[in-house]
């Protein structure tokens, strides 16, 4: 069994209100390490066996059409064992 991971992030030029809220909350709690925070989302898709190139291509298609909004977001696809 393997897990195909799709990580979706807002493009760098797009405003990220959630990330900003986290960035401004950190110092309030005494965490002073962050210069900036961006928040994204992660999908873990479990499949049987090793992923085939065809399956990866399908996930790619799904990432483009459903999991991300390509107008404002980018994604990366990784395979985790």
């Amino acid at each position: 069994m393997a897990t195909i991971v799709v990580e979706v992030m807002l493009k760098p030029e797009i405003l990220d209100p959630q990330g900003q809220a986290v960035a401004s909350a950190l110092p309030r709690l005494g965490f002073n390490f962050a210069k900036a925070v961006r928040q994204g989302k992660r999908f873990e898709i479990e499949i049987d066996g090793e992923p085939t190139p065809a399956q990866i291509a399908q996930v790619e298609d799904a990432a483009h059409k459903l999991l991300s909004n390509p107008v404002i977001e980018t994604y990366v696809i990784k395979v985790e064992k």
Partner: peptide, 11 residues
Amino acid sequence: RPSVQVGDPFA
């Protein structure tokens, strides 16, 4: 190139 504004209603 699409130039999309993103809003932050709480702001």
